[in-house]
Design a protein around this nucleic acid. Structure first.
Length: 509
DNA sequence: AATATCTCCAACCGCAGGATA
DNA sequence: GTATCCTGCGGTTGGAGATAT
């Protein structure tokens, strides 16, 4: 397809063994599998010719038979891929036209990472092409600090879907629609935590904390670059995206548990996220980023994959999981959040390494505190950056304040002492249904979701536990030294702070 | 010119779902 | 009902070329 391919094939041509595939040749190349039966790696033109010939004679499909009948030493999968991506006669060659590019963006805004479906909408283009284009584009825009979707695409997608589908409206300069959540039209400049320093220097675990919660707070997908989700199994994540999209309901309870007070908020982060990631049944299938049922696989040091919400989350959907979106959407942003390697596993401490949320911070700050105090030399994160200690000290008090909470809930050293259910029960005023119960998905939205967003929107929720986030006061983040200002990441902090300030202003207005 | 880094993309991998035995 | 095979999908990787230092 590309020149590169041809070049590659030309190179391969010299070693082409297709007419007389010798085991010696194959194994020497190291690209044979199954004991030298199947070839891997770049296709040669001879192989292409064989495959084309085979398909012309036998038609597409039955790819596993290709090897048997054509003499190709390729697995059926490889044949299908080669045919679909390079040999199909109806394939367009060359780079995408501007129209195609725009179409891809539009489609992605609607569909998320549904490359095959997008390819179906773009004759002559393959899912692989589109995927590569998109990934490249994402990276480019991330670097440039640009929103992933242009404003017009956002609004178009928005309009196409539903008046209430507002999550995609992150365009700049757009007049906020008062119908929407006051937080949904906010554009936040792309902030890469990679450069922010928070995750690397202030606190490794930070990156995981506000991720879903920021999203759930209605920050636009354009701030996706700064919003970090846990990495779930890609296949499951995407497959689940095809299911209903109740929105960010899973994290709403988290927000509801916030208070202006950072310390309370920190606890809420902990408890809610514990629940979110550990209770896969609870997670709405649409909250791709959080539905990694395999939350236990979450390391504390991540190369995190960022999942964006679709443009289709509606206010109503957020308020009620009973309203799945017909067009699930998400996108993956290859935001790699490089964090210092965690030594939790080696530390011997119990650590909340699996949730990576604020509890991790608090736990680790506690550990750091203890390290300082006891000089035992064993810390949960022994190779944390120097200023990590400083930053953790910012959280120090919070962790102290919640020692009792942790102690009362199980393992005094680790928030993992909480079971999902216990955490949830402890921190949410939900009665009756256990999160461990399978029917949670059905029952929880009724009991949980409405108050979450309603309360956040109205900002007048006065739960007895005072753990609700008043979304009208997103400034709680600003006042909490959340980002641990330093010269290194001050700029990004202010960007984000301004954005949150704008959010607040909108809400107030 | 040499080296390092980045970009692009073809191909691979694992998984899930459907079909069939 | 279960096992197996086939196919398709989406994420990831590795290498070649391009660009920067």
């Amino acid at each position: 397809m590309s020149n590169r391919t041809n070049e590659s094939e030309d190179k391969m041509e010299a070693n082409d063994y297709m007419d007389s595939p010798s085991t010696e040749e194959a194994t020497s190349e190291g690209n044979m599998t199954g004991g030298g039966l199947l070839k891997k790696g770049p296709w040669t033109s001879a192989e292409d010719a064989i495959l084309v010939d085979y398909v012309e004679k036998h038609g597409e499909g039955n790819w596993n038979a290709v090897q048997k009948h054509s003499g190709l030493f390729r697995c059926g999968k490889s044949c299908r891929l080669r045919w679909a991506n390079h040999l199909r006669p109806d394939l367009k060659k060359g780079s995408f036209t501007p129209d195609e590019e725009r179409r891809i963006i539009e489609l992605h805004a609607k569909m998320g990472n549904k490359w095959a479906r997008m390819a179906a909408e773009l004759p002559g283009r393959t899912d692989n092409e589109i995927k590569n284009f998109w990934n490249t584009r994402i990276k480019r825009r991330q670097r440039a600090g640009l929103p992933i979707y242009p404003p017009d695409i956002c609004s178009q997608s928005f309009d196409e879907n539903s008046p209430s589908l507002n999550m995609g409206r992150f365009s700049s300069g757009e007049t906020p629609n008062p119908e929407f959540l006051p937080t949904n039209n906010l554009e936040i400049p792309s902030v890469e935590f990679k450069g922010l320093g928070v995750n690397q220097e202030l606190y490794p675990s930070f990156v995981n904390i506000p991720a879903g919660n920021f999203l759930s707070a209605g920050l636009s997908p354009s701030c996706s670059n700064s919003i970090l989700y846990s990495k779930m199994h890609p296949a499951k994540r995407l497959r689940e995206s095809e299911l209903s999209l109740p929105g960010f309901g899973a994290v709403h309870p988290a927000l509801e548990q916030y208070n202006d007070d950072f310390q309370t908020a920190s606890k809420s982060f902990r408890t809610s996220y514990d629940h979110d990631i550990s209770s896969s049944s609870y997670l709405p299938s649409g909250s791709h980023a959080l539905i990694n049922g395999n939350s236990s696989s979450l390391p504390i040091s991540w190369a995190m994959k960022l999942e964006l919400p679709s443009l289709q989350y509606s206010h109503s959907q957020m308020g009620s999981w009973a309203s799945p979106s017909p067009l699930p959407s998400l996108e993956s942003v290859d935001t790699l959040i490089q964090t210092p390697p965690s030594e939790h596993a080696e530390s011997g401490h119990h650590s909340p390494q699996n949730n990576g949320l604020l509890e991790s911070i608090l736990y680790e700050s506690r550990a750091l505190k203890n390290t300082k105090n006891n000089s035992c030399g064993q810390t949960p994160n022994t190779d944390a950056p120097a200023n990590g200690a400083d930053s953790s000290s910012q959280l120090h008090d919070a962790s102290q304040l919640h020692d009792a909470d942790w102690d009362s809930c199980g393992d005094p050293n680790s928030p993992l002492g909480h079971s999902t259910a216990s955490v949830y029960r402890e921190c949410t005023p939900v009665s009756g249904n256990s999160l461990d119960e399978p029917q949670l998905m059905k029952t929880l939205p009724v009991k949980q979701e409405k108050p979450d967003w309603v309360s956040m929107t109205n900002g007048n929720e006065t739960d007895g536990n005072s753990r609700h986030l008043n979304i009208s006061r997103p400034d709680f983040l600003l006042d909490s030294n959340w980002f641990g200002l330093s010269a290194d990441y001050g700029k990004d902090y202010f960007i984000l702070r301004d954005a949150i300030g704008a959010l607040l202003a909108e809400d107030v207005a």
